[in-house]
């Protein structure tokens, strides 16, 4: 399991625009680098990030080899109802991680 840092407000007013910040530990090895032995280091990146809010997709990003290690993704959404905001990162070598955060909307 990779470490993540998530910043989602615990409480929000209905209709409020909230900022979400996510950071995940990942090497994002581009596949274009050469190792000390002269051989290419195989690509190992996260290629997809999806955020769902009570099951409905609210944000999606496709990631490329040019993105730095430990990708930091920040975006905003509208607080519609109380529930779960879920984040999923998937990538090379079967990488898949899901984290979720509860939000209370009044």
């Amino acid at each position: 399991m990779a470490r993540t840092l998530l910043n989602v407000p615990a409480k929000a007013a209905r209709g409020e625009i909230i900022e979400i910040k996510t950071l995940i530990a990942h090497p994002m090895e581009s596949g274009y680098r050469v190792g000390l032995n002269g051989a290419m280091i195989p690509r190992d990146i996260i290629d997809l990030f999806v955020c769902t809010y009570n099951g409905a997709e609210v944000f999606r990003a496709t990631l490329s080899p040019a993105i730095a290690a430990n990708p930091f993704i920040t975006f905003s959404t509208v607080a519609t109802e109380s529930g779960t905001i879920e984040f999923r990162w998937t990538g090379d070598n079967g990488f898949s991680q899901t984290e979720s955060v509860l939000i209370a909307v009044e």
Partner: peptide, 14 residues
């Protein structure tokens, strides 16, 4: 300055 955006915090947690 923000512990949720500072990647160094990943190592602090480890």
């Amino acid at each position: 300055d923000d512990d949720t955006t500072n990647p160094g915090m990943l190592w602090v947690l480890d």
